[in-house]
């Protein structure tokens, strides 16, 4: 399986190594420092404004990744609460002789209490070791984002980035993942299955409009909003075309259903 945020939601080691917001281990060893694990170029820069010491730079091109100047970082943790992607942690490698302290944003209920023993988890949410809650802070300027700090054995400092919920919630068992099969519904409005779409392609349709005219996929109430991409993917798989060359299908207004009365006062049906 391919790695990285695009595929797993978890930044890979390669992505982190390239991220300009992640300080080198030598910098981390000097004291508490922000670790900005921001690896996707999206238009976002609240971290830059949140930093009181000017250690974070995104610049005027706001799709650029944040660059951390570890020398300037004072380890205040303000950026943690302001990153909408919860991508920043504060790492203090030298919390004690044997322990490191990791601070992270925690937007779940219930919040832990100081002194609690919790399961510290890695970027993928898997428990890696026990941690002790050192502080739970939510000043008004954090706008409801809570920053939790836990102490963990020093050797896990590269891995631990959050914690498990302090209580086990009775969550429903996740339903077994069902692979798409011939009977899977593709166009919900016209009630067409994978088999119906495949049949249209086998009978000669090679475009979204072709499949639509053949099978009615996309002609229902939602006008293809739910099925267009699924149909494009099936055509791409069956005919060897690229999905991006198939999209979009021909669109005609209105973009959402309206009553006929809107365009004609005399229309005698709604």
């Amino acid at each position: 399986m391919e790695k990285g945020v695009c595929f797993t939601g978890i930044p890979s080691a390669e992505e982190l190594a390239k991220a300009p917001g992640v300080p080198a281990r030598s910098e981390m060893n000097k004291g508490p420092v922000a670790v900005i694990e921001c690896v996707q170029e999206i238009p976002c820069n609240p971290c830059e404004a949140a930093c009181p010491s000017g250690a974070i730079t995104v610049g005027s091109d706001i799709t650029k990744l944040p660059v951390l100047d570890a020398e300037k970082c004072i380890g205040c943790g303000n950026c943690l609460a302001h990153c909408p992607g919860l991508a920043i942690t504060l790492v203090n490698v030298n919390y004690s002789e044997t322990e490191a302290a990791v601070s992270f944003p925690f937007e779940y209920l219930p919040l832990p209490k100081v002194g609690d023993e919790v399961n510290a988890v890695n970027r993928g949410g898997e428990a890696v070791c026990k941690g002790n809650v050192l502080s739970v802070r939510m000043p008004q300027s954090y706008k409801q984002t809570c920053i939790v700090t836990i102490a963990i054995p020093k050797k896990y400092v590269e891995d631990v980035r959050s914690m498990e919920l302090p209580i086990k919630r009775a969550l429903p068992e996740p339903a077994a993942k069902k692979e798409i099969d011939k009977s899977s519904l593709i166009c919900r409005c016209e009630e067409l299955t994978q088999a119906d779409i495949e049949k249209a392609i086998e009978e000669g349709a090679t475009t979204l409009d072709g499949v639509k005219k053949h099978s009615r996929a996309g002609m229902g109430l939602c006008q293809g909003k739910s099925c267009e991409r699924l149909v494009a993917r099936i055509i791409a798989e069956k005919t060897g075309q690229k999905v991006e060359n198939l999209l979009p299908a021909t669109h005609r207004p209105p973009v959402r259903p309206i009553r006929l009365k809107v365009v004609d006062d005399d229309a005698d049906i709604e």
Binding site: E191, L221, K225
Partner: peptide
């Protein structure tokens, strides 16, 4: 639904899927 008489409820919840 009209063809298969299947039950439908909230799916997308943002006004797209109908």
């Amino acid at each position: 639904t009209v063809r298969r008489n299947e039950p439908r409820g909230v799916f997308c919840a943002i006004g797209r899927c109908t």
